[in-house]
């Protein structure tokens, strides 16, 4: 059965690229343009995993992750950050806040699918 992935990014182009890669690899994709929209999507039905940008308007990625864990518990859905933030401070903050993997942009299909595979999400 297709894995449901929510792609959260304020860039329409990034969402489109991620959708194309994920759908080509058998995932069903929904989208949100910021953390608040993503929370609304999750309240309507939790995806299997979330690909999450950091810097977004309204609610950023880390605020969304903390709200998600607060509302739905620590275990699911799995979250993989996908962001231009590429320093150890951000990586550690993401993982200690409950992200399972971390992708530093730019990414390609090999990196995205490799990271999802490592995270046991495929």
């Amino acid at each position: 059965m297709a894995r449901n992935c929510l792609v959260v990014d304020d860039s329409r182009i990034v969402r489109k690229v991620a959708r194309r890669i994920l759908e080509a690899n058998g995932c069903a994709v929904s989208e949100a343009a910021d953390g608040q929209q993503a929370l609304d999507v999750c309240r309507a039905g939790l995806p299997d995993f979330i690909l999450l940008d950091w810097n977004m308007p309204v609610m950023d990625g880390i605020a969304f992750l903390r709200a998600l864990r607060g509302e739905f518990g620590a275990d699911s859905p799995a979250v993989v950050f996908c962001t231009t933030e590429n320093d150890m401070t951000h990586i550690e903050m993401a993982i200690t806040s409950g992200a399972r993997e971390y992708i530093m942009k730019p990414f390609d299909e090999e990196i995205l699918m490799g990271k999802l595979g490592q995270a046991g999400l495929l």
């Binding site: 150890m88 993997e101 490799g114 990271k115």
Partner: peptide, 20 residues
């Protein structure tokens, strides 16, 4: 490079054994 540390390396290993 950033590209190389994202090919096959789990983020936990990056955090534990690498420095930027």
């Amino acid at each position: 490079t950033q590209f190389e540390v994202q090919r096959g390396l789990p983020v936990q290993m990056l955090m534990k054994y690498f420095k930027k």
